[in-house]
Design a protein around this nucleic acid. Sequence first.
DNA 1: GGCGATAGCCCATCTTAGTA
DNA 2: TACTAAGATGGGCTATCGCC
Length: 245
Amino acid sequence: MPPSPSRAPASPPAPSPHEPRLARVAAIVADPARSRMLAYLLSGDYASAGELARAASVTPATASGHLAKMLEAQFIACEQRGRHRYYRLADADVAHALESLALVAERGTHEEAWSRPERERLRQARCCYGHLAGALGVRLFGSLLQREGLSPSPEGFDVSEAGRAWLAELGYTPSAPTRKRRYAYRCLDWSERRDHLAGQLADELLQHFLERGWLRRGTGRAVELTPTGVQELLPRLEDSALTMP
DNA sequence: GGCGATAGCCCATCTTAGTA
DNA sequence: TACTAAGATGGGCTATCGCC
């Protein structure tokens, strides 16, 4: 009996030209150390390589390797400042993809996952790549919609006259779109499973609330309502069912 | 079960930039 | 100029997975 021909090495099927390179990006997120670094960067801030190594609980050498991979995959961007290198998420698309993945990852264990105190703080209010997310972010978006403060635009929303009037009550005057990024659009909230507002307008609103002292940065991505914020901001938002610690 | 490929880890070392 | 600190790189070790 002749020897059977050796089987050709299994090669992955050729990707369809219409197929997104999901395996490639999923492999980046699949590693625990990398996912911890990405989660750390979801605040939208820059972080040094050393800071990210500590966040991921790995040595600087290991972190450096992971950062190089994420840089190559265009998940993150890097800026050199002297002998430091500062990393941030590459763009809002990456941030939204990570939030969406988190939503899928905790499907089925949602309530128990959010029962821990530190998670509860994140659920109430957090920074999502520069804008406000969590229950407070959802309420802010809902309040704008309820007052017809947003009008549909090709890229998402513009601020309507009613919206300008309401924002003026909050002491904020919307600036003109910069065209560097989308102005205002929906972003599905990982913890609330409802939309909050993202984009230039949302970034500026969070900054405004921080400058007014209505909100303050907590640990990591967490954002906290200050006593002034409870007095000045909360009464202006719809759905006062939000509980504050 | 053995083997090879792959990926992740850490240690040691190197490079670069800031500082005294 | 030497020292120090931060980050990158190379090499070796280990674990896992797929194939035979």
